[in-house]
């Protein structure tokens, strides 16, 4: 059975997508699961946070990245398979004396150029944007059906904005998590994001997201503005046709998050990396994520 696919996406940048992916992957692994992280963001921040700069350079040098794979399979010689691009047991973090079972399909900055090349190359073959997304979807779906069996969860770190890769990833997902800062601008973009991805139906019903996205309140501070917008987000469930659901877990703004993400060349424990207050949040997030993704 293929592992549950969870895409972490938001049109807005800086809301904590990468931090959510890295922390959730490690929290799921610390809870005993095997996790594959797919970095679908050309900034490659999730990749560098998981394996560090030096190992990422090596992966890029060997062509073991998502962009190298997609380039090969969609417009190249079709020599690669996704499995050979995955860095198994990539994590530098341990828990209970065991190395966390987190593997990585890294990204490089070439991913952004690849998307342009794909659009250019495939439109020359008279493919429209929808067809390109469908092609990406099919390729990713086919490969995840193969490699996904080795993992209980596949987490995809999507790039900000709405790109062809992001659209394909959100349609592949059993669950889409939308990290959102509880403030005016982040919530304003949220409505637009949900409108674009969940209600736009030009791909055919088989490609629509399986369930409503789940908003995760991130970087919340103890200020009235954040309290107000957090309540407004939670109130979405009372609408006649809610656009999203909301996690009960709230991730606070904490220096421990940026400090934890910076521990790239060291070998911390899971608890030492994030600290007890954040670990408590992430454990709650694991429970809710499992409930939402597995339906348990």
């Amino acid at each position: 059975m293929t592992g549950k696919v969870i895409a972490v996406a938001n049109m807005k940048g800086g809301v904590g997508k990468t931090a959510t992916v890295v922390a959730l992957a490690e929290a799921l692994a610390a809870n005993g699961s095997s996790v594959l992280v797919i970095d679908a963001d050309a900034q490659a921040n999730a990749s560098v946070c998981i394996v560090g700069d030096i190992e990422l350079e090596k992966l890029i040098g060997k062509g073991r990245t998502i962009d190298a794979y997609l380039n090969d399979v969609l417009i190249g010689a079709q020599r690669l398979n996704l499995k050979s691009c995955i860095y198994d047991r990539a994590s530098n973090v341990s828990h209970g004396g065991q190395t966390l079972r987190v593997s990585l399909l890294a990204a490089s900055s070439e991913l952004r150029l690849l998307e342009r090349e794909l659009i250019f190359g495939l439109t020359e073959r008279n493919m429209g944007l929808n067809a390109i997304v469908r092609a990406l979807f099919r390729v990713m779906q086919r490969e995840l059906n193969i490699v996904g069996k080795a993992y209980e969860y596949v987490l995809i770190d999507c790039a900000p904005g709405i790109s062809a890769v992001t659209e394909a990833c959100t349609r592949l997902a059993d669950l889409v998590i939308v990290p959102t800062i509880p403030d005016f601008l982040s919530c304003y973009g949220l409505n637009s994001f949900c409108e674009n991805l969940w209600k736009f139906d030009s791909y055919g019903s088989q490609h629509r997201p399986k369930k409503l996205p789940r908003v995760l309140v991130t970087r919340k501070r103890q200020v009235s503005e954040h309290d107000l917008w957090a309540k407004r987000l939670a109130n979405e469930r009372n609408k006649p046709r809610p656009a999203f659901e909301v996690f009960r877990t709230v991730i606070p703004e904490a220096i421990a998050v940026s400090r934890g993400l910076a521990l790239r060349e060291e070998y911390p424990t899971f608890i030492g990396k994030w600290g007890v207050p954040l670990i408590t949040c992430y454990r709650e997030l694991v429970k809710e994520t499992q409930e939402a993704a597995d339906g348990t």
Binding site: N92, Q98, T99, Y267
Partner: peptide
């Protein structure tokens, strides 16, 4: 540490 060596 043993746990670090095993991770490496």
């Amino acid at each position: 540490l043993n746990r670090v060596m095993r991770t490496m």
